[in-house]
């Protein structure tokens, strides 16, 4: 019996290190808090917002910074793949808080349908991220300079506070994906506007068929 237990333990111990072989280490990952999808003519554009890590979280602040430009493609998938190549770290979307679509993108129904289909199949973003709309994604990214934290984290807290005050329900990505199959409800997405260097929930965008 003792020999068997030893053998079993040895096999388990041998196997355990193999579990870490293909995982990316923490310093090789980045954690987007916000994803932005825009439309420039016929091209779909994709970009992300990342948190600024303070000195106390990361000893090498320069190394932790993520700098990748907005990338465009014929489809969301193409734009996302190009963006992925621009990043020098692996993006971990498990902490994503906000997904922002531009109004121009939502008006391009084909691009939006393809994006929804891709997000459903790939499971790229968590289903519980809040979905919002804006008319100017550039202004939203610029507004970060005046905010106490990164735009994604700020917007999550802001929207949750506003949700209870306004009595309106936030929409998450799971609901958007489900509605693309169910076709039973009309979704009203929070419309974000940048006014006087601050981001405001300024009405709703009605997502129609």
């Amino acid at each position: 019996m003792g020999v068997k237990r030893w053998l079993f333990g040895a096999v388990l111990l041998w196997s355990l290190p193999l579990l870490g072989c293909s995982a990316a280490e923490l310093e090789n990952r980045c954690f987007p808090m916000m994803a932005l999808v825009d439309c420039d003519g016929e091209q779909v554009a994709f970009d992300c917002g990342f948190p600024e890590l303070s000195q106390k979280d990361n000893t090498d602040v320069e190394e932790s910074k993520v700098d990748a430009p907005m990338m465009t493609g014929e489809t969301f998938r193409e734009a996302y793949e190009k963006y992925k190549k621009e990043l020098d770290k692996k993006a971990d979307y498990n902490h994503l808080k906000i997904l922002v679509f531009s109004e121009a993108f939502l008006q391009n129904r084909e691009a939006f349908s393809q994006t929804v289909e891709y997000l459903q199949e790939s499971g790229l973003f968590p289903r519980n991220v809040y979905v919002c709309v804006t008319d100017d994604v550039g202004a939203l990214m610029e507004a970060e300079k005046n905010l106490p934290s990164d735009v994604g984290s700020y917007l999550e807290t802001y929207l949750q506070n506003q949700e209870s005050e306004r009595g309106e329900e936030l929409v998450n990505l799971g609901t958007v994906l489900d509605e693309s199959e169910n076709h039973r409800k009309t979704l009203q997405l929070p419309f974000l506007a940048v006014e006087n260097d601050s981001v405001l929930w300024n009405g709703c965008y009605v997502l129609t068929e």
Partner: peptide, 24 residues
Amino acid sequence: SFGGGALKTMRYPAVTLMSNIHLS
């Protein structure tokens, strides 16, 4: 939670159910 249309497209909806929850 998902509606019949979305539910039939999911592989393991019970697992997806928990990832839908947004805890503050």
